[in-house]
Design a protein around this nucleic acid. Structure first.
Length: 580
RNA sequence: GGGGACGUGGUCCAGUCAGGCCUAAGACGCUGGAUUGUCACUCCAGAGAUCGCCGGUUCAAAUCCGGUCGUCCCCGCCA
């Protein structure tokens, strides 16, 4: 048994006889005297091998990452030999016996360091070495603490963690499913869950009352730095909620508990709220980064009768004129403005107008606007000398305005440090998909206010739903909703989505039936724990908080998954693969 | 599906734009030796790369062109 961990030894242990185990971080061989930094998950401690012992001669042969178990005595270092850079630098362990448990080949990269000295692919191929690094050790332990605090929080409040199937049926949630072929039922497939959505609703029907689960979800879509094909959610659902407010309170409590237990940070509760419509109007995005202001301002009313046709026509045809003030940015070069224009155009704007609030004013549109109009514009924006106005006109310019705001915010490093949580509420129930068909904005089980039921048929695009997102520093952390618990209303929604009764029966018949057997009102939430861990760890990629992540191409360099299946396996499954 | 960046000893990279001076430089690591207070130990000596892969252009290709594989970032996509 080990009697101590390397990184935890201190001057208080001087004189102790200890047994340590770990990896050779580095050897400094002075001939008659050999120093080895021994590493375990707690840190480093210096081992001293004196050359007066024949049975310790093998210390001269130690290499990086060799695995040792040593006995020795903790001794204070003499005054001139302290290492103040090192946590355990006041002491060292004079080794009395050593067992070399394993020799290591030269590792492909050094374990000290933060990873910037190896490519991501090398790190993933040798993930077991990478995991020894402080950075990943910290991240995975932080992740564990998040999980533990979460489980504590919900357990203390009467929630039950229930596992839901991984081999299941395709759920209607937008993303592509991962399919698993059935051997017993050749030609049929299970789907891996994109979320346990319908199962947690079943648990509510089943009287579990309050459910949570830390659960893997799977979505077969292209990856990003903040998107992996398998990821972990905190999934929760409660029966008889007092509307969304009860869910907000629970999630806020859980997040605050996590920050307190894990980082020792007290979050201010409740989190601010913004309706989806306000978020879009003021920030041009449904997940505003609240670490800086620079809100979008609508100035359509100034231009409805303007001589400037571009602006006047935009207003007349149902669009608007709006923009942001970039404080102290009037010095932007033509190239910078061009690149901002490119950002706006890529996001759907027709162009970009700018006004440099200088003396005199310099503007891309000064020859179209009267001096009075320009002055009114600047006054409306409350812009001061040295500021830059960025203006867009037309329809559907929210997104472009939002992109502009983020681009300037990034360029000017406007985001203040901290944790800015935000609820975005009242997402629309329906939206139009790329083919112009009505689709659920959240998912088809989202409820709405009774007074809006009539609009399901008459005005579906203007129904605020009981769906909400939690946003942290401009990242979507999770979403949830109050669900439909009546079969009649659920079928009405399906009908509106042009899901035929036959189709609904085939895909969700079991679910619709359950709603007829005493389904209680219920609602819940799902929060991406990988993203939370990433942000709390200060990382910018999910790969740095997941033990064994996939590359951007959804491959695993460690195992070389995915692999072609063996012909015998395929035959058992009744599957033939076309040569590509 | 689209756009961008990248791929050179074990690792990270210089060299690629302007082909020949590249018989490919450097750092770290590695090997052998020396070394009693190091802690990024030091000193001496040394090994290690057909420049991701295939094809093309050329007297000549790490360098130019085409294709392909892989990594990273972004758009689409992901309620």
């Amino acid at each position: 048994m080990r009697t101590a961990y390397c990184g935890q030894l201190s001057a208080a242990d001087v004189g102790r006889s200890v047994k340590l185990a770990g990896w050779v971080n580095r050897r400094r061989d002075l001939g008659k005297l050999t120093f080895v930094d021994l590493r375990d998950h707690t840190g480093l401690v210096q081992l001293l091998f004196a050359d007066d012992r024949d049975d310790l001669q093998s210390a001269h042969t130690l290499n990086r990452e060799d695995v040792l178990v040593v006995h020795g005595t903790v001794q204070r270092r003499s005054a001139g030999n302290l290492n103040l850079e090192m946590k355990t630098g006041e002491i060292e362990v004079r080794v009395e016996t050593m067992a070399i448990e394993n020799r290591s080949k030269t590792p492909p990269f050094l374990v000290d360091g933060d990873g910037s000295d190896a490519t991501e692919e090398t790190r993933l191929r040798y993930r077991y070495v990478d995991l020894r690094r402080d950075r990943l050790q910290k991240a995975l332990r932080l992740r564990h603490c998040i999980f533990r605090a979460t489980r504590d929080f919900f357990s203390e409040r009467g929630f039950v963690e229930v596992e839901t199937p991984v081999l299941t049926k395709s759920t209607p949630e937008g993303a592509r499913d991962f399919l698993v072929p059935s051997r017993v039922h050749q030609g049929s497939f299970y789907a891996l869950p994109q979320s346990p959505q319908l199962f947690k609703q079943m648990l509510m029907v089943g009287g579990l009352d309050r459910y949570f689960q830390l659960v893997k979800c799977f979505r077969d879509e292209d990856l990003r730095a903040d998107r992996q094909p398998e990821f972990t959610q905190l999934d929760l659902e409660v029966s008889f909620p007092d509307g969304p407010d009860e869910i907000y309170g629970l999630v806020e409590g859980a997040v605050a508990r996590v920050f307190r237990d894990v980082l020792g940070i007290e979050l201010e509760l409740p989190f601010p709220r913004l309706t989806h419509a306000d978020a879009m109007g003021r920030f041009g995005i449904d997940k505003p980064d609240m670490r800086f202001g620079m809100e979008i301002r609508d100035v359509s009313s100034l231009f409805s009768r303007s001589g400037f046709r571009v602006f006047a026509d935009a207003v007349a045809s149902g669009g608007r004129v709006a923009g942001i003030v970039a404080k102290r940015c009037s010095g932007y070069s033509r190239a910078t403005l061009d690149s901002l224009q490119a950002t706006a155009v890529a996001a759907g704007a027709k162009g970009l107008s700018w006004v440099k609030v200088e003396d005199p004013v310099v503007s891309s549109i000064s020859k179209f606007l009267s001096g009075e109009e320009l002055a009114t514009l600047i006054a409306t924006f409350e812009a001061e000398k040295g500021d830059l106005l960025l203006l867009l006109a037309g329809q559907g310019i929210d997104k472009a305005l939002g992109e502009l705001r983020l681009a300037v915010g990034r360029k000017e490093s406007l985001a203040v440090p901290g944790w800015r949580f935000l609820w975005v509420t009242d997402f629309p129930l329906f939206e139009l998909d790329e083919e112009g068909n009505l689709a659920s904005a959240h998912h088809a089980f989202t409820s709405l206010r009774p007074e809006d039921y009539d609009k399901i048929e008459s005005d579906p695009l203007h129904i605020p739903s009981y769906a909400y997102d939690l946003v942290l520093n401009g990242t979507e952390l999770g979403s949830g909703s109050i669900r439909i618990h009546s079969r009649e209303l659920q079928e009405r929604i399906f009908r509106r989505l042009h899901i035929t009764p036959e189709d609904a029966d085939l895909r969700f018949g079991w679910f619709l039936q359950a709603l007829e057997y005493g389904a209680p009102p219920h609602g819940g939430f799902a929060l991406g724990l990988d993203r939370l861990a990433m942000i709390m760890a200060g990382e910018s990629s999910l790969r740095d908080v997941i033990a064994f992540p996939k590359t951007a191409n959804a491959m695993c360099p460690l195992t070389d998954a995915p692999m072609p299946a063996a012909p015998k396996q395929l035959a058992e499954l009744g599957i033939s693969v076309e040569e590509c």
